[in-house]
Each structure stands twice: as C-alpha cells, then as structure tokens.
Design a protein around this nucleic acid. Sequence first.
RNA 1: GGCCCUAUCGUCUAACGGUUAGGACAUCGGCUUUUCAAGCCGGUAAUCCGGGUUCGAUUCCCGGUAGGGUCACCA
Length: 471
Amino acid sequence: MEQKIITRFAPSPTGFIHVGNLRTALYAYLWAKKNKGTFILRIEDTDKAREVEGSIDHIMKSLKWLGVNWDEGPDIGGPNAPYLQSQRLESYKKYAQILIEKGLAYPDPYTEEEIDGFREKAELEKKAFLFREHRPITFGVWDGTRPLRFKVGDIKSYHWHDEVYGDLSAGPEALDDFILIKSDGYPTYNFAHVIDDLEMGVTHVMRGQEFISSVPKYLSLYDGLGIKPPLFATLPPIMGKDGNKKLGKRDGAKDVLEYEREGYLPGAMMNFLALLGWNPGDDKEIFTKDELINIFDISRIGHSGAQWNDDKLDWINKEYIKKLENEELENKIFEWLPEELKIKKLVPVIAERISKFGDIKKMITEGELDFFYKQPEYSKEKLIFKNTTPEKTSLNLKEAITALQKIDEKDFSFENVKITLMQIADGLPSRGELLHPVRYALSGLDKSPDPFVIAMILGKNETLSRLQKAI
RNA sequence: GGCCCUAUCGUCUAACGGUUAGGACAUCGGCUUUUCAAGCCGGUAAUCCGGGUUCGAUUCCCGGUAGGGUCACCA
C-alpha cells in the first residue's frame, strides 16, 4: 500500500501571513489533496516576544478565504493534537533528553555578549560565524535555564534530494551547533519542526528557499536522532513587484484579506498564486480549484524566483468575474453599490468595466455612474459634434426623439434603440453628428458607455426627457 | 567574505539536444456603431557572456557575470 501523503503549513503568529507565504500553504494543500492525503495547519508559536495578538485567527481566516482548508489544526484538533507548539513542550523536552543522553546536546556556557563578540570577530575576518568553533571541551549539566545546543556529530558535506530542486549538497560550513531549546524553555524552529513533523507523520516538507541553507543542520539532527527525514520540496522565492528583492511585508507584500477587501475573488487569487512558480505544462491558465488539485504536480514547480504581477492578477480576476453566474455577479456588484444604483440592467455595464469589485468604488467616487440616476450637468459646447452647428445638432436630436417616440415603452431595448438611432445616423455625413450628442446628452461625460445601453437602462421617458432638454 | 540557489520577450513561463524559440499578461496598431470599456485581428519583443562536449546546443559540463538566499536564544 502506498504511504499516505501528509503535508503541513506551519506559520508563526507574528502578524498576518502575506501573499508570498500563502503560496507555500497553497502548494502544500494542493499536493495533499491531489494525493488524497492530509493537510495539517500547525502554529509555530515559540517566539513569545514576536507574537502578535489575534494572529492565529487572522491566519485561519486568510486560509479559509482562499479556500485552503486544513484537515487537522488548532481549532479542529486531530490525531496528533495539540497543533500549537507552545502546547507541545513536553515532546521537545523528551527528545532533548534523548540527545543529552547520547552526548549530542549541551548547555551553552556563554553569555549573549560573549557570543556577539565571537560573531563580530568572524565578521571582521570575513568568515561565516560558526558556534561549534567555540564549543566547550566539557559539557555542563543542563538545568533548563541555559540555551541547549545540538552537538553536530559528523562535520561533513551533506548531499540530499529535493523534490523540486533535485540533488543538492552543501559543505561542512553549513553545519553548526544550533540552539535546540532557548533559555526561556521554548524550542527553536530548527528543533521543534523536526520533532513535530516526525510525530505528526509529515511526509513532505514544503517551505521557501530561504531554508535551503539550513537543511544540512536539519539533516545532522535527523542523524543524531537516528530518524529518517521526510521528503523536502523547496519552493522558489516570490519577488517584489518593483525590485528583485524577495517579496516581504516591507516592500508591499500585502495581507490576503486586503485583497478580499479590494474585491478580488478567492478563486482568482488561488489561481494566480498557483501559477506563480508552477505551470501545468500546457497553455491553460484559468483553473477551478478542483482542476488545480487534479493537475498540480511538484515536478512542475520552477526553480527561479517569480515577480509578483498585479496586472496578471487583475486579468485572472476579470476572467473569474466573466465566469460568474448572473445572479452571483449581480449580488457581488450590488454589495458595492448604493441603493439608487442597484439597477439590474446596470450589472453587465459595470461588469465589463472592472477587473475587481473594488473598482466600482472608484467609478462611483469619480462620478462615472451618477448619470444613471440623475440628470447630468454638462456644457453646451461639448454637446456639438466637431464641425456641426448647434442648429443642425438640435435638428438631429429632434429627429431622434421622433423616431424613438415610436418605440413602445416595453420594447425600449438596446437592439431597438440602436436600430432606430443608427438608421438616422447612417443618413448623416458622419454618424457622430447624432451619436455623440445623444450619448453626451444622456451621460454628460466625455467617456461613457455607448448611447444605446444608456438609453435602455434609463428607459423611454427619461431618455426622451434628457434629449428634449438638450435641444 | 564563506556556503547555497537561480538565469528564455518588460513580466509569468513552454520547448524528454534537432522548433520559423510557443503561449499568457503588459505594450503598440487595426477592426467592430462617435467617446470609454469589452471583444476580435495583427505587430514589437527573449535564450546573460565566454569556453568546451556533440554532426547539432535554450537544453549537458566548466568558468565568468548578474540576481537572490543564508551565516539569530526569528521562523
């Protein structure tokens, strides 16, 4: 029988998880679901100094919004509960004890100042700082008040396989006596995640490429513990939109819930995130969540960093808006509209003009929609098309009114208005001589939807009255 | 500085050594009912450089260069 695939996402509650980290969660989720496996949410709250109140809820809300649902986690429990590292201290102590007994862990005898001194010296000599070069000859007894360090057994080069990057290796410089348990009793990430992954049966560790250089450390710990490491799948970095820097909160990496507030669809965000560093191998770019789960494959994750691209995200989101069923589209758009603009006929006009629902807010503040519910104000001069005269314009408009008058109110559709107006316009030297003043009289805007749509939405009476007024 | 990773249009990327180097976003031009949007059609645009290996390198190897990561009692 095949081994069950178990993946996890393990954020620390130090604020919101930005969109870059969220991709890691997504890939781990997709891989688990594709293999009918388990996706675990584990909270790495071992740094009490950096912990931000409310983060855990915020993180869970973010994942839920995106549609990344966990099978085991702090809120729903699971066979390996608890899923908060701060509640798993006994486990770490147990394994720390094992390492101490093997002679592979020892209390750090130095003060922080002394270590800073070592570090500065290394920097001055342009060398990497290695604690093991200062390893004490004899180890004291660990009383829990000193940091507990791991003693690297074999100082050697490590070679390992990564599911994404292939065969990797690093020299002995990558190995060091890192801290297992801090002086406050909490484990470090380096230690805790290894123990948790072991106890939770995690088969694939997916994480950002910033952890590659630490892998030899983990490998040496697995060796010391005498356990087989899980498979590693390292993800390429996501770069910020302007620089080549890794995407971080400083350079604009946003909270996903910020995108929710801007009116992006979660499916579109998932789609976009999936494509940032992964591709299906063909030209398809728009996927439903199920399609993504079905087609996702670790082997097609790229190796190089991808730049965040809002344009592409907007395009994908628009594709998602186009796919929305009428009723859902209407509901979504109405959420952003004031009462007087909740006009059914307006929905398609707005829909084709936005790439995210937040754009509606902009349309409203810039007055682009006002004319749909109130008589616009405009200048007389602009009513006249290019070289025509006021007299000619008003003559054309009168002809239009007469023709439109003949359409029955209930037949005042886009098509009928268009046929009627076009018939007159085609008889003129330039169609604009009629179409421009009509459009302008109805909207009062330099840029607006076409006159037929506007007329259809306003209805026969309002349309005629505005044209009359223009004359 | 040590160690590590990466390198195809502006951006995301495709191309199990043999392609007119493909697609998408963006951009530019045209068309479609005057403006805007949408849509359709079309254009511009890339294998970082230098050596090998090979009949043949975007592809494999080496070296440069450039970018990124890491060297915490952070994860």
